[in-house]
């Protein structure tokens, strides 16, 4: 059905976006390290430090432990990276609509977001190290934990779009086209704000950052799921981490801050695309600093039991509360 041209353009665009995604993701890691260092009164590494690290990691050999299952052990980083990049292709970058937008929606993105974590779990179990096993168990538990608040956010957004009579409420393109803040009244605003805060706390968990880095916990598990990884495999995980950071930021931007600069500046065509893309990345960086860097620098690590309680009880309730406010708002809007 699709013409050759469309497929070719899609592949080219996907390739280009993957490379941009990897580069921006690594820059994001660099910014995170730099800002975090400044918060701790250190000078911090140069912004290109993740690239230097990556270059070194990729030039080193993979060490596969004797107890490991080599196939699974080696596949895990590739799956993690591939799935993070695929999520990126489903995200709208500024005014550019998602490349794979026609083939999936927010639900699929949610599933894909779980894949890198699952890959890490598989890789951890395949490492054959007690630290990695404990880390993998914790990764599974925390994955289950933060899914609930994340799901309530997605449902709230979809409900909002659906109740406003917008077709295809789960598609990211329609979410971006209709900024959710414009669809609600004051009560819904409060609800959305609660959901935004919830999302800000889910992001560090999704990215396994302090205080939710129990699966990797350096001081207790010596790196946990990643303990046996070295060389190229660790490099791939690093890239995946960068892309995932970008994806989480991009998702937050798409859901909560989808506005673009080009209509304001009166631009069109490629100029608009470029300006919006830059604006998009700026928004992502700002959001990541606020939700990842500040939280990871200002808190101590939680126990895994705390992570579960926090997400199931506190943020679970917060998510559901936000969701009910949004629903209440749209019901009230229907009445009056």
């Amino acid at each position: 059905m699709l013409s050759m041209d469309v497929i070719l353009v899609t592949i080219l665009a996907a390739g280009a976006l993957s490379i941009i995604g990897i580069v921006v993701g690594l820059i994001l890691l660099g910014i995170d390290r730099r800002i975090s260092a400044r918060m701790q009164a250190r000078i911090g590494p140069p912004l290109r430090q993740p690239f230097i690290d990556l270059k070194k990691l990729l030039s080193k050999e993979n060490i596969i432990p004797e107890n490991a299952i080599p196939s699974l052990f080696n596949a895990a980083p590739i799956v993690a990276l591939a799935s993070s990049i695929v999520v990126l292709l489903y995200l709208p970058i500024g005014s550019m609509m998602p490349i794979l937008g026609g083939y999936g929606d927010l639900i699929l993105v949610m599933y894909l977001l779980a894949v890198p974590a699952l890959a890490m779990v598989a890789g951890g179990f395949a490492s054959g190290s007690p630290y990695a096993t404990v880390g993998a168990q914790r990764e599974m538990v925390s994955m289950i934990a933060y899914e609930l608040p994340l799901a309530s956010i997605v449902i709230a957004v979809a409900w909002l779009l659906y109740s406003s009579g917008i077709a295809d409420p789960f598609a990211l393109s329609s979410i971006v086209a209709n900024p959710i803040w414009s669809l609600v009244g004051p009560i819904g605003m409060v609800g959305l704000f609660v959901l935004l805060l919830t999302f800000a706390w889910v992001s560090p968990a999704e990215l396994s950052k302090i205080p939710f880095d129990t699966p990797e916990a350096e001081t207790e598990l010596a790196g946990g799921v990643l303990v046996e990884y070295s060389g190229k495999n660790l490099g791939l995980f690093t890239i995946a981490q960068g892309v995932k950071t970008l994806v989480m930021g991009g998702l937050a931007v798409a859901i909560f801050f989808p506005w673009n600069l080009s209509p304001l500046l009166g631009l069109a065509g490629y100029a608009a695309l470029a300006v919006d893309a830059v604006f998009f990345f700026a928004k992502v960086i700002l959001l990541m600093i606020l939700s990842v860097t500040v939280i990871r620098t200002g808190l101590a690590r939680f126990r895994i039991t705390h992570v579960v309680t926090l997400f199931w009880v506190w943020f679970g309730v917060a998510g559901l509360f936000g969701l009910s406010l949004v629903i209440l708002d749209s019901v009230l809007a229907g009445w009056f």
Partner: peptide, 26 residues
Amino acid sequence: ALPMIREILAQVFKIPATNPFPARFL
């Protein structure tokens, strides 16, 4: 209560305490 958050937000705008390396980059 997270007293550290205030502390780190204030610290971003202060001069780092580290002694610089002899050269800026290796």
